[in-house]
Amino acid sequence: MKLFTITQQDWNRFLQTISEFVSVVAVEDHAHPFKEKLYPPHDTLFFYRKDTPKEKASIQEKKTLYYGIKPCDAKTGKLLALNFLSDPHPDPYFKAMTENTIVISTACDHFDPYCFCDQIGDSPSALNGADGILYTITSGYHLLVNHTWLSQQLQQFGLTPTEVENEKSPFDKGNVAYREIEPLPIQVLREKGLSTILNTALWEKVTATCLACGVCTFLCPACYCFDIQDLSYGRVGKRERTYDSCMFTLYTSEASGHNPRPSIKERWRQRLLHKFTYYPMQYNEIGCTGCGRCSRECPSKIDIREVIRDAAQSCE
Protein backbone atom coordinates (compact mmCIF):
# COMPACT_ATOMS: atom_id res chain seq x y z
CA MET A 1 0.00 0.00 0.00
CA LYS A 2 1.20 3.47 -0.79
CA LEU A 3 0.57 6.69 1.06
CA PHE A 4 0.44 9.98 -0.81
CA THR A 5 -0.04 13.50 0.45
CA ILE A 6 -1.89 15.77 -1.90
CA THR A 7 -3.25 19.30 -1.73
CA GLN A 8 -6.91 19.99 -2.47
CA GLN A 9 -5.92 21.82 -5.64
CA ASP A 10 -3.70 18.99 -6.85
CA TRP A 11 -6.37 16.44 -6.07
CA ASN A 12 -8.81 18.29 -8.29
CA ARG A 13 -6.18 18.57 -11.01
CA PHE A 14 -5.36 14.90 -10.65
CA LEU A 15 -9.00 13.91 -11.09
CA GLN A 16 -9.10 16.03 -14.21
CA THR A 17 -5.97 14.34 -15.54
CA ILE A 18 -7.23 10.81 -15.08
CA SER A 19 -10.68 11.62 -16.42
CA GLU A 20 -9.02 11.03 -19.76
CA PHE A 21 -8.95 7.30 -18.95
CA VAL A 22 -11.84 6.79 -16.56
CA SER A 23 -15.08 8.57 -15.86
CA VAL A 24 -14.77 10.27 -12.51
CA VAL A 25 -17.85 10.44 -10.32
CA ALA A 26 -18.12 12.21 -6.97
CA VAL A 27 -20.49 10.38 -4.66
CA GLU A 28 -22.39 12.96 -2.65
CA ASP A 29 -25.62 11.08 -1.98
CA HIS A 30 -25.05 9.05 1.16
CA ALA A 31 -28.72 8.31 1.73
CA HIS A 32 -28.50 5.58 -0.89
CA PRO A 33 -26.08 2.71 -0.50
CA PHE A 34 -23.13 2.63 -2.84
CA LYS A 35 -24.11 -0.93 -3.77
CA GLU A 36 -26.50 0.53 -6.34
CA LYS A 37 -23.47 1.43 -8.46
CA LEU A 38 -22.02 -2.09 -8.42
CA TYR A 39 -25.32 -3.93 -8.38
CA PRO A 40 -28.15 -1.81 -9.77
CA PRO A 41 -31.73 -2.09 -8.42
CA HIS A 42 -32.72 -3.54 -11.76
CA ASP A 43 -30.50 -4.96 -14.42
CA THR A 44 -31.01 -6.81 -17.69
CA LEU A 45 -29.55 -10.31 -17.76
CA PHE A 46 -30.23 -10.81 -21.45
CA PHE A 47 -32.58 -10.00 -24.28
CA TYR A 48 -34.48 -12.62 -26.21
CA ARG A 49 -36.60 -13.09 -29.26
CA LYS A 50 -39.53 -15.40 -28.71
CA ASP A 51 -39.37 -17.49 -31.86
CA THR A 52 -35.71 -18.36 -31.53
CA PRO A 53 -33.81 -19.78 -28.63
CA LYS A 54 -30.89 -17.48 -29.44
CA GLU A 55 -29.94 -15.15 -26.68
CA LYS A 56 -27.43 -12.40 -26.25
CA ALA A 57 -26.16 -10.36 -23.41
CA SER A 58 -23.68 -7.61 -22.97
CA ILE A 59 -22.14 -5.65 -20.16
CA GLN A 60 -21.07 -2.03 -20.16
CA GLU A 61 -17.33 -1.70 -20.34
CA LYS A 62 -16.81 1.83 -19.15
CA LYS A 63 -14.43 2.10 -16.25
CA THR A 64 -15.54 4.45 -13.51
CA LEU A 65 -13.73 5.95 -10.54
CA TYR A 66 -16.01 6.83 -7.63
CA TYR A 67 -14.73 8.99 -4.79
CA GLY A 68 -16.25 10.42 -1.66
CA ILE A 69 -17.79 7.15 -0.54
CA LYS A 70 -18.02 6.53 3.18
CA PRO A 71 -15.81 3.72 4.46
CA CYS A 72 -18.85 1.75 5.64
CA ASP A 73 -20.28 1.94 2.16
CA ALA A 74 -16.99 1.04 0.53
CA LYS A 75 -17.22 -2.30 2.31
CA THR A 76 -20.18 -3.17 0.09
CA GLY A 77 -17.88 -4.40 -2.69
CA LYS A 78 -16.06 -6.76 -0.38
CA LEU A 79 -19.24 -8.16 1.17
CA LEU A 80 -21.23 -8.56 -2.03
CA ALA A 81 -18.26 -10.21 -3.72
CA LEU A 82 -18.33 -12.97 -1.12
CA ASN A 83 -21.73 -13.97 -2.44
CA PHE A 84 -21.59 -12.98 -6.08
CA LEU A 85 -18.11 -14.20 -6.88
CA SER A 86 -18.30 -17.43 -4.92
CA ASP A 87 -17.70 -20.72 -6.74
CA PRO A 88 -18.79 -22.64 -8.67
CA HIS A 89 -20.76 -20.01 -10.58
CA PRO A 90 -19.35 -16.49 -10.17
CA ASP A 91 -21.79 -13.83 -11.27
CA PRO A 92 -20.48 -12.35 -14.55
CA TYR A 93 -22.44 -9.10 -14.24
CA PHE A 94 -21.16 -8.24 -10.78
CA LYS A 95 -17.68 -9.34 -11.79
CA ALA A 96 -17.66 -7.02 -14.79
CA MET A 97 -19.04 -4.16 -12.72
CA THR A 98 -16.44 -4.47 -9.97
CA GLU A 99 -13.59 -4.93 -12.43
CA ASN A 100 -14.67 -1.72 -14.12
CA THR A 101 -14.86 0.26 -10.93
CA ILE A 102 -12.28 2.07 -8.83
CA VAL A 103 -13.50 3.00 -5.36
CA ILE A 104 -11.94 5.75 -3.25
CA SER A 105 -13.53 6.40 0.09
CA THR A 106 -13.19 9.35 2.44
CA ALA A 107 -12.50 8.76 6.11
CA CYS A 108 -15.58 9.72 8.03
CA ASP A 109 -15.50 12.65 10.43
CA HIS A 110 -18.66 12.14 12.44
CA PHE A 111 -21.13 9.64 13.82
CA ASP A 112 -24.83 10.20 13.63
CA PRO A 113 -27.20 8.51 16.13
CA TYR A 114 -27.49 5.43 13.90
CA CYS A 115 -23.87 4.83 12.91
CA PHE A 116 -22.21 1.80 14.45
CA CYS A 117 -19.29 0.76 12.26
CA ASP A 118 -17.02 1.10 15.28
CA GLN A 119 -19.28 -1.19 17.30
CA ILE A 120 -18.83 -4.12 14.92
CA GLY A 121 -15.07 -3.96 14.67
CA ASP A 122 -14.70 -1.57 11.74
CA SER A 123 -13.66 2.03 11.98
CA PRO A 124 -14.61 5.25 10.21
CA SER A 125 -11.11 5.30 8.72
CA ALA A 126 -10.88 1.67 7.56
CA LEU A 127 -10.04 0.90 3.95
CA ASN A 128 -12.67 -1.87 3.94
CA GLY A 129 -11.62 -3.25 0.57
CA ALA A 130 -11.65 0.10 -1.23
CA ASP A 131 -8.93 0.93 -3.74
CA GLY A 132 -8.00 4.03 -1.83
CA ILE A 133 -9.04 6.22 1.07
CA LEU A 134 -8.72 9.95 1.60
CA TYR A 135 -7.97 11.40 5.02
CA THR A 136 -8.76 15.07 5.21
CA ILE A 137 -5.91 17.23 6.60
CA THR A 138 -5.69 20.99 6.76
CA SER A 139 -3.76 21.35 3.51
CA GLY A 140 -5.62 18.68 1.57
CA TYR A 141 -5.49 14.93 1.92
CA HIS A 142 -3.46 11.94 2.87
CA LEU A 143 -4.32 9.33 0.30
CA LEU A 144 -3.77 5.66 1.03
CA VAL A 145 -3.80 3.65 -2.18
CA ASN A 146 -4.17 -0.07 -2.72
CA HIS A 147 -4.46 -0.06 -6.50
CA THR A 148 -1.54 -0.42 -8.90
CA TRP A 149 -2.86 1.67 -11.76
CA LEU A 150 -4.00 4.44 -9.45
CA SER A 151 -0.69 4.74 -7.64
CA GLN A 152 1.15 4.71 -10.98
CA GLN A 153 -1.02 7.57 -12.13
CA LEU A 154 -0.35 9.48 -8.90
CA GLN A 155 3.37 9.01 -9.33
CA GLN A 156 3.23 10.09 -12.94
CA PHE A 157 1.39 13.13 -11.69
CA GLY A 158 4.54 13.91 -9.70
CA LEU A 159 3.77 12.64 -6.23
CA THR A 160 6.13 10.49 -4.21
CA PRO A 161 4.55 7.87 -2.00
CA THR A 162 5.73 6.25 1.19
CA GLU A 163 5.19 2.53 1.67
CA VAL A 164 2.68 1.61 4.35
CA GLU A 165 2.60 -1.88 5.84
CA ASN A 166 -1.12 -2.12 6.46
CA GLU A 167 -4.22 0.02 6.57
CA LYS A 168 -3.91 0.63 10.33
CA SER A 169 -2.60 4.05 9.56
CA PRO A 170 -1.71 6.73 12.06
CA PHE A 171 -4.93 8.52 11.14
CA ASP A 172 -7.21 6.30 13.14
CA LYS A 173 -7.68 8.86 15.87
CA GLY A 174 -6.64 11.94 13.97
CA ASN A 175 -8.97 13.85 11.75
CA VAL A 176 -11.55 11.12 11.74
CA ALA A 177 -14.43 10.35 14.01
CA TYR A 178 -13.54 8.50 17.16
CA ARG A 179 -15.47 7.60 20.28
CA GLU A 180 -15.24 5.30 23.26
CA ILE A 181 -18.18 2.98 22.90
CA GLU A 182 -19.13 -0.50 23.92
CA PRO A 183 -18.96 -2.94 21.02
CA LEU A 184 -22.04 -4.90 20.01
CA PRO A 185 -22.07 -8.58 21.00
CA ILE A 186 -21.70 -9.78 17.42
CA GLN A 187 -19.26 -12.48 18.48
CA VAL A 188 -22.01 -14.12 20.52
CA LEU A 189 -24.32 -14.26 17.52
CA ARG A 190 -21.48 -15.51 15.39
CA GLU A 191 -20.89 -18.46 17.67
CA LYS A 192 -24.28 -19.15 19.15
CA GLY A 193 -26.79 -17.47 16.85
CA LEU A 194 -28.35 -20.80 15.92
CA SER A 195 -29.53 -21.26 19.49
CA THR A 196 -32.09 -18.48 19.00
CA ILE A 197 -33.92 -20.35 16.24
CA LEU A 198 -36.69 -21.79 18.37
CA ASN A 199 -36.92 -18.78 20.68
CA THR A 200 -40.40 -17.65 19.65
CA ALA A 201 -40.61 -15.09 22.47
CA LEU A 202 -37.51 -13.30 21.19
CA TRP A 203 -38.73 -13.08 17.61
CA GLU A 204 -42.19 -12.03 18.73
CA LYS A 205 -40.69 -9.21 20.75
CA VAL A 206 -38.41 -8.12 17.92
CA THR A 207 -41.16 -8.11 15.32
CA ALA A 208 -44.04 -6.67 17.37
CA THR A 209 -43.92 -3.41 15.43
CA CYS A 210 -42.14 -4.53 12.24
CA LEU A 211 -44.23 -3.71 9.18
CA ALA A 212 -42.48 -6.16 6.84
CA CYS A 213 -41.62 -3.51 4.29
CA GLY A 214 -38.39 -3.67 2.35
CA VAL A 215 -36.66 -0.47 3.44
CA CYS A 216 -34.00 -2.12 5.59
CA THR A 217 -32.98 -4.61 2.95
CA PHE A 218 -33.16 -2.33 -0.09
CA LEU A 219 -30.93 0.22 1.61
CA CYS A 220 -28.54 -2.29 3.18
CA PRO A 221 -25.07 -2.28 1.62
CA ALA A 222 -24.71 -5.99 2.36
CA CYS A 223 -28.12 -7.25 1.17
CA TYR A 224 -28.01 -8.73 -2.29
CA CYS A 225 -31.14 -10.84 -2.73
CA PHE A 226 -32.76 -10.54 -6.10
CA ASP A 227 -35.72 -11.70 -8.10
CA ILE A 228 -35.64 -12.69 -11.75
CA GLN A 229 -38.53 -11.83 -14.03
CA ASP A 230 -39.26 -11.93 -17.74
CA LEU A 231 -40.61 -8.81 -19.39
CA SER A 232 -42.23 -9.34 -22.77
CA TYR A 233 -42.85 -6.73 -25.40
CA GLY A 234 -44.64 -8.68 -28.11
CA ARG A 235 -42.18 -11.09 -29.68
CA VAL A 236 -39.15 -9.68 -27.95
CA GLY A 237 -38.33 -9.28 -24.32
CA LYS A 238 -35.74 -9.39 -21.65
CA ARG A 239 -34.94 -11.30 -18.54
CA GLU A 240 -34.26 -8.93 -15.73
CA ARG A 241 -33.17 -9.09 -12.15
CA THR A 242 -34.46 -6.70 -9.51
CA TYR A 243 -33.79 -6.26 -5.82
CA ASP A 244 -35.89 -8.53 -3.67
CA SER A 245 -36.32 -8.60 0.07
CA CYS A 246 -36.48 -11.42 2.58
CA MET A 247 -39.09 -9.30 4.37
CA PHE A 248 -41.64 -9.92 1.59
CA THR A 249 -44.14 -12.79 1.61
CA LEU A 250 -43.59 -13.60 -2.04
CA TYR A 251 -39.87 -14.03 -1.52
CA THR A 252 -40.15 -17.65 -0.36
CA SER A 253 -43.76 -18.58 -1.09
CA GLU A 254 -44.02 -21.55 -3.39
CA ALA A 255 -46.40 -22.22 -6.25
CA SER A 256 -48.20 -24.80 -4.13
CA GLY A 257 -49.08 -22.08 -1.63
CA HIS A 258 -46.63 -23.42 0.96
CA ASN A 259 -44.37 -20.80 2.51
CA PRO A 260 -41.42 -22.01 4.57
CA ARG A 261 -41.20 -18.57 6.20
CA PRO A 262 -44.88 -17.84 6.76
CA SER A 263 -44.66 -14.88 9.14
CA ILE A 264 -42.55 -11.85 9.85
CA LYS A 265 -40.95 -13.74 12.75
CA GLU A 266 -39.23 -16.26 10.47
CA ARG A 267 -38.28 -13.53 8.06
CA TRP A 268 -36.68 -11.30 10.71
CA ARG A 269 -34.85 -14.33 12.07
CA GLN A 270 -33.56 -14.99 8.57
CA ARG A 271 -32.43 -11.38 8.11
CA LEU A 272 -30.62 -11.12 11.42
CA LEU A 273 -29.06 -14.57 11.42
CA HIS A 274 -28.07 -14.30 7.76
CA LYS A 275 -26.03 -11.24 8.56
CA PHE A 276 -24.56 -12.22 11.89
CA THR A 277 -24.53 -16.02 11.93
CA TYR A 278 -24.85 -17.58 8.47
CA TYR A 279 -22.57 -15.12 6.66
CA PRO A 280 -19.75 -15.70 9.16
CA MET A 281 -20.34 -19.45 8.88
CA GLN A 282 -20.09 -19.22 5.10
CA TYR A 283 -17.44 -16.57 4.57
CA ASN A 284 -16.01 -15.68 7.97
CA GLU A 285 -17.34 -12.11 7.65
CA ILE A 286 -20.45 -10.54 9.10
CA GLY A 287 -22.91 -9.22 6.52
CA CYS A 288 -23.12 -5.75 8.00
CA THR A 289 -21.17 -2.55 7.58
CA GLY A 290 -22.59 -0.61 10.50
CA CYS A 291 -23.92 2.13 8.23
CA GLY A 292 -27.16 2.21 10.21
CA ARG A 293 -29.47 2.81 7.25
CA CYS A 294 -31.79 -0.03 8.25
CA SER A 295 -32.51 1.69 11.56
CA ARG A 296 -32.31 5.27 10.30
CA GLU A 297 -34.94 4.71 7.62
CA CYS A 298 -37.14 2.15 9.36
CA PRO A 299 -40.75 3.40 9.47
CA SER A 300 -41.12 1.69 12.86
CA LYS A 301 -37.65 2.85 13.93
CA ILE A 302 -36.63 -0.65 14.89
CA ASP A 303 -32.98 -0.35 15.84
CA ILE A 304 -30.88 -3.28 14.71
CA ARG A 305 -28.46 -2.67 17.59
CA GLU A 306 -31.23 -3.34 20.07
CA VAL A 307 -32.15 -6.50 18.21
CA ILE A 308 -28.54 -7.66 18.16
CA ARG A 309 -28.31 -7.13 21.91
CA ASP A 310 -31.66 -8.84 22.58
CA ALA A 311 -30.75 -11.81 20.41
CA ALA A 312 -27.27 -12.15 21.88
CA GLN A 313 -28.68 -12.00 25.36
CA SER A 314 -31.03 -14.86 24.63
CA CYS A 315 -28.24 -17.06 23.21
CA GLU A 316 -27.54 -20.07 25.33
Partner: peptide, 8 residues
Amino acid sequence: IGKCGRCN
Protein backbone atom coordinates in the same frame (compact mmCIF):
# COMPACT_ATOMS: atom_id res chain seq x y z
CA ILE B 1 -26.61 -21.02 -8.34
CA GLY B 2 -26.69 -19.74 -4.77
CA LYS B 3 -26.78 -16.04 -5.58
CA CYS B 4 -30.33 -14.76 -5.29
CA GLY B 5 -30.61 -15.66 -1.62
CA ARG B 6 -34.07 -17.10 -1.09
CA CYS B 7 -33.53 -20.85 -0.77
CA ASN B 8 -31.19 -20.93 2.21
